[in-house]
Protein backbone atom coordinates (compact mmCIF):
# COMPACT_ATOMS: atom_id res chain seq x y z
CA UNK A 1 0.00 0.00 0.00
CA UNK A 2 1.22 3.54 -0.74
CA UNK A 3 1.73 6.20 1.91
CA UNK A 4 -1.37 7.33 3.79
CA UNK A 5 -3.21 10.52 2.94
CA UNK A 6 -3.64 11.16 6.64
CA UNK A 7 -1.28 9.91 9.30
CA UNK A 8 -1.63 10.94 12.96
CA UNK A 9 0.83 9.88 15.61
CA UNK A 10 0.06 10.60 19.26
CA UNK A 11 -2.24 13.41 18.19
CA UNK A 12 -3.35 15.59 21.11
CA UNK A 13 -5.52 18.67 21.17
CA UNK A 14 -5.83 20.63 24.37
CA UNK A 15 -8.13 23.64 24.56
CA UNK A 16 -7.27 26.15 27.24
CA UNK A 17 -10.43 26.99 29.13
CA UNK A 18 -10.48 29.66 31.83
CA UNK A 19 -8.17 28.10 34.37
CA UNK A 20 -8.60 24.44 33.46
CA UNK A 21 -8.00 22.81 30.10
CA UNK A 22 -10.15 20.56 27.92
CA UNK A 23 -8.38 17.66 26.32
CA UNK A 24 -10.40 17.02 23.17
CA UNK A 25 -7.95 14.52 21.68
CA UNK A 26 -5.84 12.52 24.06
CA UNK A 27 -3.34 10.79 21.81
CA UNK A 28 -4.72 9.39 18.60
CA UNK A 29 -2.94 7.27 15.98
CA UNK A 30 -4.69 6.99 12.64
CA UNK A 31 -3.69 6.14 9.08
CA UNK A 32 -6.15 6.82 6.29
CA UNK A 33 -5.13 5.74 2.82
CA UNK A 34 -5.88 7.08 -0.58
CA UNK A 35 -9.23 5.97 -1.94
CA UNK A 36 -10.75 5.05 1.40
CA UNK A 37 -14.28 5.95 2.49
CA UNK A 38 -14.15 6.40 6.26
CA UNK A 39 -16.84 7.20 8.81
CA UNK A 40 -15.80 8.81 12.07
CA UNK A 41 -18.39 8.06 14.71
CA UNK A 42 -18.89 8.47 18.40
CA UNK A 43 -20.96 10.24 21.01
CA UNK A 44 -21.31 13.98 21.22
CA UNK A 45 -18.22 15.66 22.59
CA UNK A 46 -15.97 12.71 21.79
CA UNK A 47 -13.72 14.83 19.58
CA UNK A 48 -14.96 14.03 16.08
CA UNK A 49 -15.16 17.61 14.86
CA UNK A 50 -11.88 18.46 16.53
CA UNK A 51 -10.19 15.61 14.69
CA UNK A 52 -11.72 16.66 11.42
CA UNK A 53 -10.68 20.29 11.81
CA UNK A 54 -7.12 19.25 12.50
CA UNK A 55 -7.09 16.70 9.70
CA UNK A 56 -8.47 19.40 7.42
CA UNK A 57 -5.72 21.82 8.49
CA UNK A 58 -8.21 24.32 9.84
CA UNK A 59 -6.57 23.90 13.22
CA UNK A 60 -3.27 22.58 14.58
CA UNK A 61 -2.33 19.87 17.05
CA UNK A 62 -1.16 20.73 20.53
CA UNK A 63 1.06 17.66 20.65
CA UNK A 64 1.92 14.78 18.34
CA UNK A 65 2.63 14.56 14.66
CA UNK A 66 0.56 14.86 11.50
CA UNK A 67 1.51 13.94 7.95
CA UNK A 68 -0.80 14.97 5.15
CA UNK A 69 -0.25 13.38 1.74
CA UNK A 70 3.21 12.25 2.85
CA UNK A 71 4.23 15.67 4.10
CA UNK A 72 4.87 16.63 7.71
CA UNK A 73 2.34 19.37 8.37
CA UNK A 74 2.55 19.41 12.17
CA UNK A 75 4.10 22.83 12.35
CA UNK A 76 3.34 24.67 9.14
CA UNK A 77 2.17 28.27 8.96
CA UNK A 78 -1.43 29.40 8.56
CA UNK A 79 -0.83 30.47 4.99
CA UNK A 80 0.68 27.09 4.12
CA UNK A 81 -2.34 25.43 5.72
CA UNK A 82 -4.58 27.65 3.62
CA UNK A 83 -2.77 26.64 0.43
CA UNK A 84 -3.12 22.92 1.20
CA UNK A 85 -6.80 23.37 2.03
CA UNK A 86 -7.24 25.19 -1.23
CA UNK A 87 -5.50 22.63 -3.41
CA UNK A 88 -6.14 19.29 -1.74
CA UNK A 89 -9.11 19.40 0.62
CA UNK A 90 -12.82 19.95 0.05
CA UNK A 91 -15.08 20.62 3.04
CA UNK A 92 -18.73 19.84 3.44
CA UNK A 93 -20.44 21.15 6.56
CA UNK A 94 -23.65 20.32 8.37
CA UNK A 95 -24.92 23.86 7.89
CA UNK A 96 -23.87 24.05 4.21
CA UNK A 97 -21.90 27.28 4.75
CA UNK A 98 -22.65 28.91 1.44
CA UNK A 99 -22.20 32.66 1.00
CA UNK A 100 -25.70 34.12 1.20
CA UNK A 101 -25.13 36.97 -1.22
CA UNK A 102 -23.52 34.84 -3.91
CA UNK A 103 -25.23 32.65 -6.49
CA UNK A 104 -24.75 28.89 -6.59
CA UNK A 105 -22.18 29.25 -9.33
CA UNK A 106 -20.27 32.00 -7.52
CA UNK A 107 -20.22 29.84 -4.40
CA UNK A 108 -18.76 26.98 -6.39
CA UNK A 109 -16.13 29.28 -7.88
CA UNK A 110 -15.04 30.58 -4.47
CA UNK A 111 -12.07 28.19 -3.96
CA UNK A 112 -10.79 28.96 -7.46
CA UNK A 113 -10.59 32.62 -6.53
CA UNK A 114 -7.84 31.78 -4.09
CA UNK A 115 -6.06 29.33 -6.36
CA UNK A 116 -2.52 30.19 -7.36
CA UNK A 117 -1.86 30.66 -10.21
CA UNK A 118 -5.32 32.00 -11.04
CA UNK A 119 -7.26 29.46 -13.12
CA UNK A 120 -8.49 30.48 -16.54
CA UNK A 121 -11.75 28.70 -17.34
CA UNK A 122 -13.58 29.58 -14.13
CA UNK A 123 -17.15 29.51 -15.40
CA UNK A 124 -16.72 26.41 -17.46
CA UNK A 125 -15.26 24.48 -14.52
CA UNK A 126 -17.91 25.63 -12.09
CA UNK A 127 -20.69 24.65 -14.48
CA UNK A 128 -19.08 21.24 -14.85
CA UNK A 129 -18.98 20.78 -11.08
CA UNK A 130 -22.61 21.85 -10.78
CA UNK A 131 -23.52 19.33 -13.49
CA UNK A 132 -21.79 16.59 -11.52
CA UNK A 133 -24.14 17.18 -8.57
CA UNK A 134 -27.16 17.74 -10.79
CA UNK A 135 -27.46 21.47 -10.07
CA UNK A 136 -26.54 22.92 -13.46
CA UNK A 137 -29.95 24.53 -13.97
CA UNK A 138 -29.81 26.31 -10.61
CA UNK A 139 -26.49 28.04 -11.19
CA UNK A 140 -27.83 31.59 -10.82
CA UNK A 141 -29.94 30.90 -7.73
CA UNK A 142 -29.04 32.33 -4.34
CA UNK A 143 -28.75 29.87 -1.43
CA UNK A 144 -31.97 31.27 0.04
CA UNK A 145 -33.75 30.15 -3.13
CA UNK A 146 -32.56 26.55 -2.77
CA UNK A 147 -33.71 23.66 -0.55
CA UNK A 148 -31.37 22.21 2.07
CA UNK A 149 -30.48 19.25 -0.11
CA UNK A 150 -29.81 21.53 -3.07
CA UNK A 151 -27.62 23.78 -0.95
CA UNK A 152 -25.63 20.78 0.18
CA UNK A 153 -25.18 19.73 -3.45
CA UNK A 154 -23.82 23.16 -4.26
CA UNK A 155 -21.47 22.79 -1.28
CA UNK A 156 -20.31 19.44 -2.68
CA UNK A 157 -19.69 21.04 -6.06
CA UNK A 158 -17.65 23.70 -4.30
CA UNK A 159 -15.64 21.00 -2.48
CA UNK A 160 -14.90 19.35 -5.83
CA UNK A 161 -13.93 22.37 -7.85
CA UNK A 162 -10.18 22.29 -7.20
CA UNK A 163 -9.87 18.50 -7.76
CA UNK A 164 -9.10 17.69 -4.11
CA UNK A 165 -7.29 14.60 -2.82
CA UNK A 166 -9.59 14.50 0.17
CA UNK A 167 -13.18 15.41 0.93
CA UNK A 168 -14.18 15.95 4.53
CA UNK A 169 -17.80 16.06 5.54
CA UNK A 170 -18.88 16.94 9.10
CA UNK A 171 -22.43 15.65 9.60
CA UNK A 172 -23.31 16.36 5.97
CA UNK A 173 -26.80 14.92 6.40
CA UNK A 174 -27.46 16.36 9.85
CA UNK A 175 -29.72 19.15 8.62
CA UNK A 176 -31.52 17.06 6.00
CA UNK A 177 -34.43 14.63 6.02
CA UNK A 178 -33.70 10.92 5.60
CA UNK A 179 -34.40 10.74 1.90
CA UNK A 180 -32.39 13.83 0.99
CA UNK A 181 -29.66 12.65 3.34
CA UNK A 182 -29.43 9.41 1.41
CA UNK A 183 -29.19 11.24 -1.88
CA UNK A 184 -26.30 13.29 -0.51
CA UNK A 185 -24.62 10.10 0.73
CA UNK A 186 -25.04 8.57 -2.72
CA UNK A 187 -23.34 11.60 -4.25
CA UNK A 188 -20.45 11.24 -1.80
CA UNK A 189 -20.22 7.51 -2.51
CA UNK A 190 -20.07 8.26 -6.22
CA UNK A 191 -17.14 10.58 -5.60
CA UNK A 192 -15.43 7.81 -3.68
CA UNK A 193 -15.99 5.50 -6.63
CA UNK A 194 -14.13 8.04 -8.75
CA UNK A 195 -11.11 7.59 -6.49
CA UNK A 196 -11.40 10.50 -4.07
CA UNK A 197 -10.69 9.84 -0.40
CA UNK A 198 -13.79 10.70 1.64
CA UNK A 199 -14.05 11.12 5.40
CA UNK A 200 -17.51 11.54 6.89
CA UNK A 201 -18.16 12.50 10.50
CA UNK A 202 -21.57 11.20 11.48
CA UNK A 203 -23.90 10.18 14.28
CA UNK A 204 -26.02 8.20 11.91
CA UNK A 205 -25.42 4.47 12.16
CA UNK A 206 -27.07 3.84 8.85
CA UNK A 207 -24.57 6.17 7.22
CA UNK A 208 -21.80 4.41 9.11
CA UNK A 209 -22.97 1.02 7.91
CA UNK A 210 -22.50 2.17 4.37
CA UNK A 211 -18.77 2.86 4.65
CA UNK A 212 -15.84 0.48 4.33
CA UNK A 213 -14.26 1.62 7.52
CA UNK A 214 -15.56 3.07 10.76
CA UNK A 215 -13.48 4.78 13.42
CA UNK A 216 -15.21 5.14 16.78
CA UNK A 217 -14.06 7.89 19.10
CA UNK A 218 -14.83 8.18 22.79
CA UNK A 219 -13.50 10.87 25.11
CA UNK A 220 -10.78 11.87 22.74
CA UNK A 221 -9.46 8.35 22.15
CA UNK A 222 -10.03 5.73 19.48
CA UNK A 223 -12.38 3.15 20.83
CA UNK A 224 -12.71 0.98 17.73
CA UNK A 225 -11.34 1.06 14.19
CA UNK A 226 -13.19 -1.51 12.12
CA UNK A 227 -12.99 -2.35 8.48
CA UNK A 228 -16.02 -3.97 6.89
CA UNK A 229 -15.45 -6.38 4.07
CA UNK A 230 -19.07 -6.18 3.06
CA UNK A 231 -20.43 -2.74 2.53
CA UNK A 232 -24.17 -2.76 2.93
CA UNK A 233 -25.95 -1.13 0.04
CA UNK A 234 -24.98 2.52 0.32
CA UNK A 235 -26.35 3.29 -3.05
CA UNK A 236 -30.07 3.24 -2.49
CA UNK A 237 -32.26 3.25 -5.46
Amino acid sequence: MDSPVIRFQGAKKIYPMSGETVEALKGVDINIYSGELVAIMGPSGSGKSTLMHIAGLLDSLTEGKYWFDGEDVSFISRDQQADIRNKKIGFIFQSFNLLARCTAQENVELPMLYQRPAPSNLHQKSMEALRMVGMENRSSHLPSQLSGGQQQRVAIARALINDPTLIMADEPTGNLDTKTGKEIMNTLAALHKNGITVIIVTHDHEVGQATQRRIFLRDGLIEKDEKQAQVSGLIVS
Binding site: D83, R85, N86, F91, N97, L98, L110, Y114, N162
Partner: peptide, 12 residues
Protein backbone atom coordinates in the same frame (compact mmCIF):
# COMPACT_ATOMS: atom_id res chain seq x y z
CA UNK B 1 -14.53 31.49 8.04
CA UNK B 2 -15.93 30.00 4.84
CA UNK B 3 -13.42 31.87 2.72
CA UNK B 4 -10.59 30.73 4.93
CA UNK B 5 -11.82 27.11 4.82
CA UNK B 6 -11.69 27.07 1.03
CA UNK B 7 -8.16 28.42 1.05
CA UNK B 8 -8.15 32.21 1.43
CA UNK B 9 -4.87 33.33 2.89
CA UNK B 10 -4.79 36.03 5.51
CA UNK B 11 -3.79 38.67 3.05
CA UNK B 12 -6.69 37.71 0.73
Amino acid sequence: GIRMAVGARRRD
